[in-house]
Write a protein that binds this DNA or RNA. Structure first.
Length: 479
RNA sequence: CGGGGCGUAGCGCAGUUCGGUCAGCGCACCGCGUUUGGGACGCGGGGGUCGGCGGUUCAAAUCCGCCCGCCCCGACCA
């Protein structure tokens, strides 16, 4: 419950974030280091995100399944890069039923290996392809430094794993799912993201190509909030995922994987939140509208509550996620602050004056103070509210996009780049060498985030070394 | 894993320097009453092995040792 004010963003952005996650009851610290408990308000938000993604997965031909959380340790030795990438962060089960296990079992840090193993059993012929499976679940990585939602040891996500007959088709799948993520982020979460390819050093362990959507947080740091990988035949070779083609020749499949996690909640908080608290876009908000009834005496209550009930029923009937805050023990003023902190996009106050005038008071979360307030008739509320929710959704995206664009710079030279990444992103020509990338990181702490898919026609000179560069890349400090 | 900070009621803290009414405060919680259009108030209550274990002492939240946990800052990462 809200009792006092949040640390302002400008004072300490990290502190603001931590306090807000706890106070808004999205999540709490678990008794195990690095683990979180996602509380009902946070989980409802996640469910709404899941719904938006799952619908898109189904529309693009995918089906859901569930694979086990425990994976034989030997599986991690089959793909060299994958081992190197994940070994350090594995949690390993050594005992079961009171006895030491003959083969140790890893809690999945991601499921490429076990799914690859299963695919090798299921796939025989080109007729079996493509395999387009997604699973919703959690994974565990022994992270050194954790933060609620942004990096926890265990986190919830979905991981899609697909197998294809051709490289082109697998590549197409990789980009298709990147598009799905971008569409979801932009249209459902109102988070403007940039689609792009990751550099070699930022690539997923075992992937031939990693793509991601990158978003700018309120402190201008970057956050990768969804990622899609093309594996080529790496995992197919390691796990014998083979098929007979139409010419009766044995071939390795081409595989992909793609994932989006509860980290997206962290992104949502840091993109839209302000000093009052969360601001949740209507499309995924657990509550889109909260009605605060206002009355002093029982006689006023008796006049107000029937209207509240009527409006509630109408909005609910119209498919709007609405809640009546009927808590008796706290004042309306407290409720206003409380729901603002929790990020409910639209508040509706109904009091004696409204009953008299046949009106309700609306307050938009995205426009503080007087600017966001309006008084509208009780007639035709569902339509008015629906439209206002759409307006809020659009204006959140607009605001976030404007903020991002205002903090993306195109430095003229390396000195300017070093300045610019202190408080924003730099979009610069880059020769794609690991040396130049490392130098930037060494000098500024900023890393390459993505090589955007949208590229200029021409060529340029690498901002670091001055050599020929074919691609522009975003440099930024990242979470 | 290095550096820093912290652990006393559900939350936030004081008390620890210098052992002895130090088991306390604010918020939250429970009861009653008055309140309610931007974080209400009065009165009355309940609640704590002082992170754990061991040691010193007549006496330990306080001193000593070991351990555990969490947060922050760095190196690595969805």
């Amino acid at each position: 419950m809200a009792d006092d004010k949040l640390t302002p963003q400008s004072e300490n952005f990290s502190e603001w974030y931590n306090q807000l996650v706890l106070k808004s009851e999205l999540a709490d610290y678990a008794p195990v280091r690095g683990c979180m408990v996602v509380r009902p308000y946070g989980w409802t938000l996640w469910e709404n995100m899941q719904a938006g993604l799952d619908r898109r997965f189904k529309e693009t031909g995918h089906v859901n399944a569930a694979f086990p959380t425990l994976i034989p340790m030997s599986f991690f030795e089959k793909e060299k890069d994958h081992v190197e990438g994940f070994s350090p962060e594995l949690a390993v089960v050594t005992h079961g039923g009171g006895n030491e296990l003959e083969e140790k079992l890893a809690f999945r840090p991601t499921s490429e290996t076990i799914i690859g193993y299963m695919y090798s059993k299921w796939i025989q012929s080109w007729r079996d392809l493509p395999v387009l499976i997604n699973q919703w679940g959690s994974v565990l990585r022994w992270e050194l430094r954790t933060r609620l939602f942004l990096r926890t040891a265990e986190f919830y996500w979905q991981e899609g794993h697909t197998a294809h007959a051709t490289s082109d088709e697998a590549m197409e799948e990789t980009y298709k799912m990147l598009d799905v993520y971008a569409d979801f982020a932009i249209n459902d979460c109102a988070i403007p993201v940039i689609k792009g390819r990751k550099s070699e050093t930022e690539r997923f362990a075992g992937a031939q190509m990693t793509t991601g959507i990158e978003a700018m947080m309120g402190d201008t740091k970057a956050l990768q909030s969804g990622t899609s990988h093309y594996f080529g035949q790496n995992f197919a070779k390691a796990f014998d995922i083979d098929f007979l083609n139409k010419e009766n020749e044995l071939e390795h499949c081409y595989t992909t994987s793609w994932g989006l996690s509860t980290r997206m909640i962290g992104a949502l908080i840091m993109v839209h939140g302000d000093d009052q608290g969360l601001i949740i876009p209507p499309k995924i908000a657990p509550f889109q509208v909260v009605i605060v009834p206002i009355f002093r005496k029982d006689e006023e209550r008796e006049k107000v509550m029937p209207i509240v009930d009527k409006v509630f029923a109408e909005l609910k009937e119209a498919g709007i996620r609405v809640k009546v805050d009927d808590r008796d023990q706290v004042s309306p003023g407290f409720k206003f602050n409380d729901w603002e902190m929790r990020g409910v996009p639209l508040r509706m106050d109904i009091g004696p004056k409204d009953v008299e005038k046949g009106s309700v008071a609306l307050a938009r979360r995205d426009l503080p103070g007087r600017d966001g307030k309006s008084f509208v008739s009780q007639d035709g509320l569902p339509a008015v509210v629906t439209e206002m929710l759409e307006t809020i959704q659009a204006s959140l995206l607009e605001k976030a996009t404007a903020f991002r664009d205002a903090n993306i710079h195109e430095p003229k030279d390396y000195d300017e780049l070093k300045e610019v990444v202190k408080k924003g992103w730099a979009l610069s020509w880059w020769c794609e060498s690991a040396e130049c990338e490392a130098k930037v990181k060494e000098d500024t702490k900023a890393t390459t985030r993505v090589i955007p898919l949208d590229q200029p026609e021409d060529e340029g000179k690498c901002i670091v070394c001055g050599e020929k560069a074919e691609k522009k890349v975003y440099f930024a400090k990242a979470y």
